[in-house]
Each structure stands twice: as C-alpha cells, then as structure tokens.
C-alpha cells in the first residue's frame, strides 16, 4: 500500500544510508531555520540546488519526489498567486484592472524557493528513514517518551486502518456508491469513518489487553544502535560550513543591494 511504502525505509543504497538518523533530523531542522532566514535570491537558489543534490544522494526517485515537493495546497497556491497584486511597488503588468508589482512577484518567488528547498531536504534526509527509526531517533533527541509512543502507535496502525478503509470503500463501490455533491455522499462517508472509529477503538482495547498480558510497563526499548561515526562528523562539518556560507552570501548580497 502506498501509505505504508512512504512510511517504510526507502533509503536505497545511496551514500546517505549510513548517516546517523539523529544527525539527519538535526541537519534538516537547522537547514530549515537557515533557509527561512535567507532573503537573497542567489543564496536561496543555492539552497534549492543543495536540496536537489541531497535528494539525488539519498537515491530518492526524482520524478515522484519532485512532484511531492511541488504539491501544495490549492490554498497556499492562491496566496502566492495573489502576492504580486497585493504587495505595493513597481508595476510590471496589469491584469483585469489589477497591477502586479515586481516586489510582490519577488516575494512569491522567495516563498516558493524556501518552501520547496525545506520540503525537499526533509524528504531526502528524514523522509527516506523508516518511520520507526525516526521515532527512535526523536526519542534519543529527547522528544518526550509519551509523544514518541503516540507516534509509534500511529505509524503502526495507519497501514492497518488504511487497509480497512480501502476494504470498506470497495464494499461501498460494490453496492453502487459513487461520490457526488449530495447529502447522501456526506452521510455515507461519515458513516464509513464512524465505522473506522468503532473498529479502531475496539482494536485499541485488544491491543491494550495484549500488552497488559505481556506485562507492558510503559517503556519501549529502542532496538536501533545509532553510532555517530567519522562519516557523520564529516557530514556535520560540511553541513555547518554550507550553512555558514549560505548565511554569508545572503548578508553580502543584501548589503550590496
């Protein structure tokens, strides 16, 4: 199933495979913070270039990954499309009585570059991990144990519930259900989701009973042995230098303009 595939290990055999998951998370987070603080076009384009390089290094399939990166809510897209018309500045073209400003267009491009660079690095460094490994790494990075356990249960059962959903949807289709703009559709989908809730609550009771019977005391033992090695130190050093360069380029260009 597609969802389960996305949540399982997809690293392939790229050079990033051996990197410590904790380092991947930390690097992605730091990259995001650096990129969001940039404002120079050259620095942002460099950041996006780096993100694409990382995607290739992670051996992620290029086309689906780029499509995933570019997929944005229609809502976000509307905001970006309106920016040229709402930011005051030098008009570059007019459309239906509204004039678009160069500054607005620049702002929209800036947001596009930032958002896509961050998402791509996140997909390359963190998204290629197994979701369970991600949980263990977050636990080692001091994320509260409760939250990590919630993540584990969610990840574990998304696949199960997803399949249950698909089965119920098939059953509905077999009975001639076709989604349309009708109260009947909304009610049927509501009942479908209600059924999922009923089943998942019952399942959670069975899970809890099974865990109790095995003497669960509220702790998961991380099975992953994360080892921070020489390759990790090298990657960390390179990453820090790159981030510093990005920030310097940004400063220099901003003051020059």
């Amino acid at each position: 199933m597609q969802i389960v595939d996305a949540l399982s290990d997809r690293t392939g055999h790229g050079p990033l495979r051996a990197l410590d998951p904790r380092l991947r998370i930390a690097a992605a987070a730091l990259f995001a913070l650096v990129v969001v603080s940039l404002s120079d076009r050259v620095a942002l384009l460099t950041a996006l270039g780096l993100a694409i390089a990382l995607m290739l290094a992670a051996r992620l399939p290029a086309v689906p990954t780029l499509r995933r990166m570019a997929a944005m809510d229609g809502f976000m897209l509307a905001i970006l499309l309106m920016l040229p018309f709402t930011v005051p500045g030098t008009p570059i073209f007019a459309w239906g009585g509204f004039s678009a400003s160069a500054q607005g267009l620049a702002k929209a491009v800036e947001i596009l570059l930032k958002a896509n660079a961050v998402v791509l690095v996140l997909l390359a460094l963190v998204g290629s991990l197994d979701a369970v490994t991600l949980g263990h790494a977050l636990a080692r990075l001091r994320m509260p144990a409760n939250l990590v356990q919630l993540l584990f249960f969610t990840v574990r059962y998304i696949g199960v519930i997803g399949e249950e959903y698909a089965r119920l949807r098939t059953a509905m289709r077999a009975r001639g259900f076709r989604p349309s703009n009708s109260l009947h559709t909304y009610r049927s989908i509501g009942y479908l989701l209600g059924m999922l809730l009923v089943r998942s609550l019952e399942r959670s009771e069975r899970i809890l009973a099974a865990m109790r019977c095995r003497g669960f005391q509220g702790r998961f033992y991380p099975l992953d042995d994360f080892a921070y090695g020489r390759a990790d130190a090298l990657f960390a050093g390179l990453a820090l230098m790159t981030f510093a360069c990005l920030l310097i380029v940004d400063r220099v260009h901003v003051t020059a303009v």
Binding site: L150, F153, T154, R156, I158, L201, S204, L208
Partner: peptide, 8 residues
C-alpha cells in the same frame, strides 16, 4: 494505544 489508533 487508544490515542494512537484514533490518530491513525
């Protein structure tokens, strides 16, 4: 477990 299942 219950919260995790609901989240899923």
């Amino acid at each position: 477990p219950r919260a995790g299942l609901l989240t899923a």
